[in-house]
Amino acid sequence: MQQTLRTLIVDDEPLAIERLQMLAEQQDGVLLVGTAGDGATALRMVDALAPDLVLCDIAMPDLNGIDVAAAIEKLDNPPAVVFVTAFDRYAVAAFDVAAVDYLLKPVAPDRLTRALARVREWRMADRSGQQKSRWIGEFWVQNRGEMLRIDADQVDLIEAERDYMRLHVGSRSWLIHQTIKSLEARMDPDQFMRIHRSKMVRRGGIAGLRHHGDGAWSVDLGEGGVHRIGRTYLHDVKAIMQP
């Protein structure tokens, strides 16, 4: 039997709540237990109703959706949080508060169905004793009108493009709004390393190092190409060859 998800909808726009409520009612196994028009009310209702799922807008006055999710995450038995927003720029903050999914308005019925399936998987997983890692484990990127989840260990190369970072996964790539300095501080150094002022690579994707005649070195990522190592980072990169 499909697990029924007791669901709370949070949005400061009444029409947005009405639309999402109509979409939720079309889904199997969803029981709407309440709606909230602001973050503070949402937290009080979470405490009183103990929902399984919170469908939450992000851009709200005072207590925004990120704040709400951060407070929910501290609960002993937190509900799943799925963001429903008109903006993709909050995707970086979403993995700080362990959002289960990230939906862009207007939400298509099939996209909501996939999000609910992901919530059920999340709830069935044994999360007892797990501690939140300080490192980024996933990214949310915009892909053809929806947000796509990418595991960090799928990323081969991270490359700066002005105020954005491009994530390379095989032959595909996506942009996220983040600087390389702030992103580097949140990536697991055992998994990723900086090789240039504008590039980071996944250690496990390094096929080899190439020495050029002019004293310069490059990292060979196989099908991911060859990338020059900046002199500032050369010592740390060459250290991976030490036993």
Rank of each mutant, 00 (worst) to 15 (best):
S198F: 03
E146W: 07
W174R: 02
E159P: 03
T41D: 15
R144C: 13
K105Q: 00
A185G: 04
H196M: 08
A69L: 07
G34M: 05
V237I: 07
E159Y: 03
V82K: 07
G222S: 07
V81I: 09
R172W: 05
H196Q: 01
F192S: 06
Q27V: 02
V100W: 01
S173K: 07
P243H: 13
L148N: 01
L5W: 09
W217R: 08
K238M: 15
I158Y: 00
M165R: 03
D110S: 12
L32G: 06
L63E: 12
L31W: 13
A216K: 03
E138H: 14
A36H: 02
L75G: 12
Q27R: 01
E18Q: 14
V84R: 04
R172G: 04
T4F: 10
V219M: 05
P14F: 04
V155S: 07
G145P: 08
A16H: 09
V201F: 03
E223W: 11
D126P: 03
P78A: 00
V84D: 01
D153V: 12
A108H: 14
R149S: 13
V46H: 11
V68T: 07
G29Y: 00
D11M: 02
T113G: 13
A207H: 14
L8E: 01
V10F: 07
V237A: 06
L20R: 00
Q21H: 15
Q3W: 06
A69D: 01
R162L: 10
R120K: 02
S198M: 02
S128I: 11
D76R: 11
A69M: 08
R114S: 15
V97S: 04
Y164C: 08
F83M: 09
H177N: 13
P243V: 13
R203M: 08
L112A: 11
R162F: 05
V68A: 07
V141E: 11
L32V: 01
Q130S: 11
M200L: 10
G215N: 06
D47W: 12
D151P: 06
R202A: 13
L148E: 12
D110Q: 12
N64Y: 00
R166G: 09
N143W: 14
H235A: 15
V155L: 05
Y164P: 04
Q142S: 15
